[in-house]
């Protein structure tokens, strides 16, 4: 089924949104193969369609045309229940962290485990482990409003990993953070990737992020994806 280790396959993907009564093509014939264990970058300016593309990958957004295959499973063929199961194998983190504001750090991490009915005691044990992994064991009882941006993203990463997913989708995960914090978050993602054998998709508008972490990158412009090179330092100067 996935002999070649292809975790995410995007085939002939089109996505349209209505705009002023007309259909606006936001993604045009996108084709991608993302392999097990790689960190795959998608870079583009604001409005290029990056978020739409990554949201199509777990069907938060339904494609207008085309197919998404996760480990060979065509998402269009799945019923809602099966789709939810596939999503549990795909952690996702966001620019604005999207933690539950009324839950403290550990309860945020327990949230996805509650959804699948893991016992509270086991969930908390696992959540503590994860807090340690992301260097937040001191902040177990802190609420999001009491955490810095970088700390919130660490909790969000721990939450995204709570169900042991094989895939991690990152939509501008460092765009709200300063350069130092960005670096530490990227290091954490890199380390988790090696340790857990994750496949990581990184959406960004910052060449530095791609340089720091990606094995492979494509660029997206007006909804069209094209091959791209990892930028080198000469690029900057």
């Amino acid at each position: 089924m996935i002999e070649d280790g292809c975790m995410i396959e995007v085939k002939g993907l089109y996505k349209e949104f209505p705009l002023n009564g007309q259909m606006q093509e936001v993604l045009k014939d996108v084709n991608l193969r993302i392999y097990k264990g790689e960190v795959f970058g998608i870079i583009g300016v604001s409005g290029a369609g990056k978020s739409t593309l990554v949201r199509c990958m777990n069907f938060l957004e339904k494609p207008t045309k085309g197919e998404i295959l996760i480990k060979g499973k065509n998402l269009s063929d799945l019923n809602p229940k099966e789709l939810r199961e596939v999503r549990r194998n795909m952690g996702m983190i966001f620019q604005q962290f999207q933690l539950l504001e009324q839950r403290n750090a550990i309860d945020n991490i327990c949230f996805p485990m509650e959804l699948v009915g893991i016992k509270r005691k086991d969930a908390r044990t696992k959540a503590r482990e994860l807090l340690k992994t992301v260097g937040m064991e001191e902040k177990e009882r802190s609420f999001p409003s009491q955490l810095s941006g970088g700390q919130k993203q660490r909790v969000a990463i721990a939450r995204a990993l709570a169900l042991n997913p094989e895939i991690l989708l990152c939509d501008e995960a460092t765009s709200a953070l300063d350069p130092e914090t960005t670096k530490s978050i990227l290091e954490l993602i890199r380390e988790l990737k090696s340790r857990l054998g994750l496949t990581v998709v990184i959406i960004t508008h910052e060449p530095d992020v791609v340089k720091a972490i990606c094995d492979r990158v494509v660029s997206i412009k007006n909804g069209v994806v094209s091959e791209s090179e990892i930028p080198t330092d000469s690029f900057e100067n």
Binding site: N58, L60, P80, R84, E85, R87, R88, M90, G91, M92, F94, Q98, F111, P112, L115, V116, R159, A160, L163, L169
Partner: peptide
């Protein structure tokens, strides 16, 4: 985010 975690 909850939907991405497979919440019904």
């Amino acid at each position: 985010a909850a939907q991405s975690m497979g919440a019904s």
